[in-house]
Computed example of a mutant assay.
Amino acid sequence: MVVEIVASVAILVAGVTLFVLIHVCIIGRTFSTITSGASMQSGTILISRIGSMSQEDIKKLPSYDFNMEEQKSLEKSTSECVVCLEKFKSGEKCKLLPSCNHSFHCECIDSWLVKTGACPICRALVDIGREEGSFPSEVGLELR
């Protein structure tokens, strides 16, 4: 019986050791990839390395008054802001990110973009380089 307990403990220790070694190898590989940048594709950017946006650039993003009736007619409409997790209400000021067409409450996305210049849903970089008239017309919103 003592032999069985010793064998069980030895197998348990060996299993935990193997698990820790695998974990260390995976973490080591991840950190070496991040620092060397060797395996990063040209369009891939880590969120932790994305800089914030200036207040001036954030003000350039298109905004609109949310209209429940218009949103119901759109196929790809979302009913809530993923930053604050509250439903959009008619008449609320919202902003549209031009690079991915995701919408958020103005205050919510402004505070998000001050910290990280990427969409909180798809992590696409926010592109403010477009002219206001060049946003996709499929959104069906009157932008200001």
Rank of each mutant, 00 (worst) to 15 (best):
M1K: 11
V2I: 01
V3T: 15
A7E: 14
A7M: 12
V9P: 08
V9I: 11
V9H: 06
A10R: 11
A10S: 12
A10K: 06
I11L: 13
L12M: 10
V13T: 14
A14R: 11
A14L: 13
A14E: 07
T17V: 14
L18M: 13
L18T: 14
L18N: 09
V20P: 12
V20N: 12
I22L: 15
H23P: 07
H23L: 13
I26P: 02
G28I: 10
G28Y: 07
T33H: 09
T35M: 03
A38K: 11
S39M: 09
M40S: 00
Q41H: 02
Q41G: 04
S42Y: 00
S42L: 00
G43P: 01
I47R: 11
I47M: 04
S48C: 07
S48P: 02
R49P: 02
I50T: 06
G51E: 03
S52Q: 00
Q55Y: 05
Q55G: 08
Q55L: 11
D57H: 03
D57C: 02
I58F: 05
K59F: 03
K60M: 06
K60H: 02
D65C: 10
N67L: 06
M68E: 15
E70D: 10
L74I: 10
L74D: 12
L74Y: 15
S77K: 03
T78D: 03
T78F: 12
S79D: 14
E80G: 04
E80I: 02
V82N: 09
V83L: 06
K87S: 06
F88E: 10
F88S: 09
K89W: 09
S90H: 15
G91W: 10
E92G: 05
K93D: 13
K93A: 04
C94R: 05
L97H: 09
L97R: 06
S99A: 14
N101E: 14
H102N: 08
C106A: 12
C106H: 06
E107N: 07
E107H: 05
I109H: 01
I109S: 05
I109M: 03
I109D: 05
W112R: 01
W112V: 07
L113K: 01
L113Y: 04
L113H: 10
K115Q: 12
K115P: 02
G117I: 03
G117K: 01
G117F: 08
A118Q: 00
C122V: 06
R123Y: 07
A124G: 14
A124E: 11
L125F: 04
L125E: 03
V126W: 07
D127T: 09
I128E: 00
I128T: 07
E131M: 10
E131D: 15
G133V: 04
S134F: 12
F135E: 09
P136D: 15
P136R: 15
P136E: 15
S137D: 13
E138N: 12
G140D: 02
E142I: 14
L143N: 02
R144T: 10
